[in-house]
């Protein structure tokens, strides 16, 4: 039977909900579910994931205060080894992508990145070529390491809380050190958690376009704001807002693509959205091919109208 170890991600004392997708994917294989929480003062995080695991292992150490790939990978691999874990899982977040390949190397395990489906205990599907191709891959090693695309697996139902226990960890000697983290400060929901996303393309013409036109729409909807690569490259929006093949993958209930042409690299990051609205003055823009509702028009005129109409519609 499979023994799963799910690596729990957290930031500023809060569980990253993307981790729950890893529990969901592991549950599809079946077997014993173990969770690992690394860090310092992470008791609350352990409690938050206890309903999804048979046992939560808490590895606290001064050397794990900041998440660094080298010491984290060692601790994860050590715990996986002593548990006899057959599968090690994490969300394919920027942290998961950073750390898990090192775990695979330490465990001499084959790895599948960013999977979108579980076929059986060794076979997984994953998007390739910016999501234009879905590959089915088999991991031929006894131990397997997998990162999970969070938008493809809904959080599992909470069960009776599993046991929480300390596990001794040794980060070992590391060639890396943490300097600082500059967080993007925002009152809006995070892109990964947002029910509605308003995304800006080059058509917004500058940061003023985002501030003056898109922000009021996002305010009216309680939405997060995202952007295309061109907008981030131009410095009109923080890099953290980028949606696409090489940025974030999102799948909200409602996605507004505003002044955004819809290059395949962008579409790769948002086509899983439940309802897509495209607003673009070019009727031939590729974004209309993936949009549920398309409105051809000048965004500087249409979006303020839409903002007012939505305010009214929501009463």
């Amino acid at each position: 039977m499979a023994t799963h170890l799910i690596v729990v991600e957290h930031q500023s004392g809060k569980l990253n909900k993307a981790t729950l997708s890893a529990f969901a994917a592991a549950a599809k294989v079946g077997g014993d579910m173990h969770a690992l929480v690394l860090g310092q003062g992470v008791g609350d995080i352990a409690k938050a994931v206890a309903p999804y695991a048979k046992k939560v292992h808490v590895g606290e150490h001064a050397g794990l205060k900041d998440r660094l790939a080298q010491p984290y990978a060692k601790c994860i691999a050590d715990v996986a080894g002593s548990l006899g874990a057959t599968h090690v899982w994490a969300a394919a977040s920027s942290a998961g992508k950073d750390v898990l390949p090192r775990v695979a190397a330490r465990l001499d395990a084959a790895m599948a990145s960013d999977i979108c489906a579980v076929i059986d205990e060794k076979t997984f599907k994953r998007p390739m070529w910016a999501g234009n191709v879905i590959g089915t891959v088999e991991l031929a090693t006894a131990k397997k390491v997998i990162t999970v695309r969070p938008t493809e697996f809904s959080a599992p139902a909470a069960g009776a809380p599993g046991e929480i226990g300390a596990v001794s960890v040794d980060p070992g000697a590391s060639k890396m050190s943490f300097v600082k983290f500059d967080a993007v400060v925002s009152d809006r929901p995070a892109l990964a958690d947002a029910r509605v996303i308003v995304a800006a393309g080059r058509g917004v013409k500058g940061p003023e376009g985002i501030k003056g036109v898109l922000e009021p729409l996002a305010d009216a909807l309680g939405a997060a704001i995202g952007a295309s690569r061109a907008v981030c490259d131009a410095g009109w929006a923080p890099n953290d807002w980028q949606i696409g093949q090489t940025g974030k993958v999102v799948a909200p209930e409602l996605y507004f693509a505003v002044g955004l042409s819809g290059a395949i690299q962008h579409v790769a990051g948002m086509k899983g959205s439940k309802c897509i609205v495209a607003i673009n003055k070019d009727p031939e823009a590729p974004i209309f091919q993936v949009a549920d509702y398309g409105l051809v028009g000048d965004l500087f005129k249409v979006v303020p109208e839409l903002t007012e109409a939505i305010k009214k519609a929501k009463g």
Partner: peptide, 9 residues
Amino acid sequence: EADGGLETV
């Protein structure tokens, strides 16, 4: 480039 901001290592 990390989720939620910029990290320096």
